[in-house]
Amino acid sequence: MEQIYQEFDQYDFENDINFQSGLPLILQSQQSQENKSKEDIDQIIKKAKWFYFSKVVKKFDYNDYLVWKKSNNKLSPSTINEITEINENKSSSSTINETTEINEITGISDNSNSNNLMSQETPQYPKSFQQVIELITSGQPIPGIKKIPNEINKETPSHPKLEQRKKPWEKKD
């Protein structure tokens, strides 16, 4: 296990194209829900790294890893908070959703076909991590998103003209 943890610590996330191309989307999705502090963003990135590594390289338990970090005296104060927070939130939906979203991103990234798609999607979006952070912290709008007026159609809705059809299983009784 220790070997995996060390491998994870040393993994070159900065130059992993798959990871870097998925990260802006994760951060934007987080941003879209509420305003996050820099610490929050760092945590999201850390967890994203763990999910990505677990999916693409080797699976390991994040809490066990943090315990190992602690026992190796490499623990920063924020990591302690993280352990408590993860334990507290283990069954909360926000943690699960984050998991799902990040899993989905990494699911894409470990598939070579989808790299094309990601790069097709990404041009509309800031590529580098720093640009995204700048957009988030300065509260600028994410490019490529259309503004749709929140309106109700004032025309008279249609009246049904067709008769209801029996479903295949309703005929066979």
Binding site: L25, Q28, E101, I105, E121, I142, G144, K146
Partner: peptide
């Protein structure tokens, strides 16, 4: 959904 439903229209 655009952008895999993470953000956008």
């Amino acid at each position: 959904a655009a952008n895999f439903g993470l953000v956008g229209n």
